[in-house]
Write a protein that binds this DNA or RNA. Structure first.
Lengths: 208, 208
DNA sequence: TTATAAACATTCATGAATGTATGTAAATAA
DNA sequence: TTATTTACATACATTCATGAATGTTTATAA
């Protein structure tokens, strides 16, 4: 039976993406053949080639599915007006990011694929830029927020907002990488929220 | 002409390792065929198979060549007795690490391969553990040094040594990853030493 | 109702990488 | 001096992934 309805076709497209995620995660991107992915999705390579031009396009689709809404979520916290203290917005945003990472196996799988199961060469070198841009954006955003905190006298004296932003930037990136690539039995995931709290506490005024 | 002398054989072994590094860096590990590596080294696949069992063994040899001496160097700073303030030892150790990374193209290439040009699955999943161990060790070491600083009253009051160590741990890891994977025209490499200084300054007493 | 095109499955040709097996000349040990 | 390894090069068989070409239904528009 072929020639499904439009909705059914969209469904198989999504199943291919989900299967790709599982296969990428298990075998790594370059060892994930389209045959394996198709089989995991319950279709043949013909279906995969119908929906996606090649492996790279499938990879990008899988990534975009998870990435865009995540950035939107964390930005909502970061740019929210409901925090009296801008530092609370930063803390809430970062905490939310790692909370999603902890709660959603799908998100975690995609990040693990991108960090330790993909080689950024050839058709995939553009991925690095696509990932680098949000990182760059994140730095710019938290710098603005830190600046607001400084203006309102809520950043500890002697700390430059840009310096604080860069430090938080590196901290966040490092925490992500450590969490996903060398957790092996370490209790790091249970320490995450405490680490974020401590990190932010160091730049608040009147640290008890 | 075959059957070289022992020293000549050792030389070709090294040339194969160097060629592997260049090829791995350009094409990524999985797309680096032993044929390409052999050609880059000026030999045939026969020579590669003579010196190494397969691609994985060649990869490990290439990595070990660079990794071991680097850890030794940074540890020398970290565990040195010549610093009055233990925090200076930490700062010097981290600074030294990134200085080597900046100065040595070989070291940088190997780190770039390991961070963004290798998939940690199959025969390579053990690499993650091998890299995770030094990271774990680094945390333990700086925690001890932070504790010394606290005992000598040189750590800013209100900061727990373990918390400080974890924060520095994440910071260092993040800085490394940001530096190697999303530098694209950013002036990050020029900011590194300043960022380290700022990071450490936040945990020193009497921040001017 | 029928033609068209969508949504796949199937088949085929091709190339590329791997591992192994075998060849070979020179260094080295006896 | 000669036998034996060493340090490779060459050749071969096999597997495997890719992309394209073609086949096959069936939803859908006209």
């Amino acid at each position: 039976m072929v020639r499904k309805t439009k909705e059914e076709a969209e469904q198989t497209r999504k199943e291919i993406i989900h299967a790709a995620r599982r296969v990428f995660h298990e075998y790594g991107v370059s060892r994930s053949t389209l045959e394996k992915i198709a089989k995991a999705a319950g279709v043949t390579r013909g279906a995969v080639y119908w929906h996606f031009q090649d492996k790279a396009e499938l990879f990008f689709a899988m990534r975009e599915d998870v990435f865009a809404p995540l950035v939107e979520r964390t930005d909502a916290y970061l740019l929210s007006e409901r925090f009296d203290n801008p530092l609370d917005a930063i803390e809430a945003s970062i905490t939310e990011f790692f909370r999603v990472l902890e709660d959603s196996a799908v998100v975690r799988e995609v990040f693990e694929i991108m960090i330790s199961r993909c080689e950024y060469v050839g058709e995939f070198s553009s991925v690095e830029e696509e990932v680098g841009r949000p990182a760059q954006d994140f730095l710019a955003k938290i710098e603005r927020v830190y600046r607001q905190a400084a203006e309102r006298g809520m950043l500890r004296p002697g700390i430059d907002p840009l310096d604080a932003a860069r430090d938080t930037w590196a901290f966040t990136s490092g925490l992500l990488h450590l969490l996903l690539s060398c957790q092996r039995g370490s209790d790091l995931s249970q320490q995450v929220s405490a680490m974020i709290r401590v990190h932010m506490a160091m730049r608040r005024i009147t640290p008890s």
